[in-house]
Design a binder for these strands. Structure first.
Lengths: 116, 116
DNA sequence: CCTTTTCATCGATGACTGTCGATATATTAA
DNA sequence: TTAATATATCGACAGTCATCGATGAAAAGG
């Protein structure tokens, strides 16, 4: 999990939209093997919902894959993409753990630690 | 708070390093008005710790400002930069709230909710 | 006023990126 | 084998970006 690579991958509007789409897909896929509950997509599905050429979508998916954000799986002639939840969750943890050291900021009163 | 702009701003290694630096600064600043507890920096401090021209650092700080991630304040001839905690915290919330709909993923057993 | 210091802004440049159409590849169906 | 479909890859091109040195602007000190 490389946070900078993830920031970069999601810092592009169309790519962010693709990622959000993968997070939220619920409808049917054109690939019959994909059930709605899977929250998965094939490339054709994405080309129908995003104003991009198929090759561009493949490219963006590759970038998301390189960042570890999505996984692929072959099903017949289709490739089924899904969010890689492990990576996403560790990224979430990373962001949550990133906070200001030092604590004292802004016009905040400085209180001594009790019991010292 | 525009998440895509924040992703983009932090998706660049040098800029990410500057942001991390601002999050964690604890030592003294060359600007005497800055106390270590503030977790703040002036541009000179950053030029000493990062292998970039001063103009490049100013540029990256501007990008971080445009994303709302940092704030500036004049103190004499210095400009003191600090992480904007409000923006960062709402970004943290945004990331934490971004999760897969649909729930069913991977070869995970589907357990019925108890008590229904 | 003049000088010094800090920092932003400008202009240039090489590198990277998003996008497309065209093509190649792989799988299934006939 | 041939055809059709889904998707990756290639090559090109325009636009953006990271970086630098040089310059400008503002504040402080003499």
């Amino acid at each position: 999990m490389n946070p900078i690579q993830i920031f970069k991958a999601l810092g592009q509007p169309q790519r962010y939209a693709l990622f959000e789409d993968l997070l939220q897909v619920q409808g049917a896929s054109c690939c019959a093997d994909v059930i709605p509950e899977e929250s998965a997509c094939c490339v054709v599905d994405l080309t129908q919902r995003h104003p991009l050429a198929q090759s561009t979508i493949s490219h963006h998916l590759q970038v998301l894959m390189d960042a570890g954000l999505v996984t692929v799986e072959r099903r017949g002639t289709y490739r089924v993409y899904q969010v890689n939840q492990e990576t996403w969750e560790s990224f979430q943890r990373h962001v949550a753990d990133t906070k200001v050291c030092g604590a004292i900021r802004r016009p905040v009163a400085v209180e001594p630690v009790l019991g010292t």
